[in-house]
Simulated scan of single mutants.
Amino acid sequence: MEWSDEGIILGLRRHGEANAIVELMTAAHGRHLGLVRGGSSRRQAAALQPGNGVRVVWRARLDEHLGTFALEVVAPRAGRLMAYAHSAFALSHVGSLVRMLPERDPHPGLHETLVAVVEHLDEPRLTGMLIARLELMMLSELGFGLDLDRCAATGGRNDLLYVSPKSGRAVSRDAGEPWRTQLFELPYFLIGEVAEPPSRHDVEAALELTGHFLARRVFEPRGTALPDSRAALIAALHRLDAS
């Protein structure tokens, strides 16, 4: 068995004295693990860092085997991403989210989005927006997508400002006004393109929204809490805003 693909390194762990098991998110083969011979050596370990983009060849005798990776780093991002607290925490959080997916389950659209997100995680003004959008996409990829296209009360598509914390459906300004204190805000950048990075308030509102549904629909049913890296990322972004 053999295939070639492109991917992003999510993580790695030592395997024996010199080898490493590397976890990738690939374009056509989903989240996939493989053995890299000599991957724990000083020469290779520096390249096999989370966030780096790679070309990969996977080989195994049978499809169900772990198999081996031959990796070539084509986008060495890890150095600059690990240089800042907010991007390091964001990268860790991205890995935690992707690990919610079944192994070897293809998600080509998600991989394409991940490439764009990871490329810009060291830009503080964009990081919160990118993570909130990714979390919204992850909810959909996991089968828990929110219905943000039309108002739950009227069916209209205009002036959508709120989201029901129970149904995950959008609510328009007029329909939601009487219950606005019980609803989440719906920042526009979650449903449309924006010319400028969103305000701190909108980023916080978006992360509150996506965090609620990730906790309720993804992590809590598995008996776990939201990853610590998420809270650390939000704290790091707050420190940057205050500086």
Rank of each mutant, 00 (worst) to 15 (best):
M1N: 13
S4G: 07
G11Q: 02
L12N: 12
A18G: 13
M25I: 09
T26P: 02
A28L: 15
G30H: 03
S40M: 12
R42C: 08
Q49G: 02
P50G: 05
N52D: 08
V56K: 08
V56N: 04
W58P: 04
R59Q: 14
L62G: 02
G67K: 15
A70G: 08
A78I: 08
R80S: 11
A83P: 00
A85N: 10
H86L: 04
H86R: 14
S87G: 03
L91I: 01
H93P: 08
V94S: 04
L101S: 02
L101C: 06
P106L: 02
G109M: 09
L110V: 00
T113A: 01
E123K: 12
M137T: 09
S140K: 15
L142P: 07
D147V: 13
D149H: 15
R150P: 00
R150K: 11
C151P: 07
G155W: 08
L160R: 00
S164W: 01
E177F: 10
P178S: 09
W179L: 15
T181M: 08
L190K: 01
L190Y: 01
L190T: 01
S199I: 05
S199V: 10
L207C: 04
T210H: 01
G211V: 11
R217K: 05
E220M: 06
R222S: 13
G223V: 10
A225H: 12
L226S: 03
D228V: 12
A235H: 07
R239P: 07
L240M: 09
D241K: 12
A242Y: 02
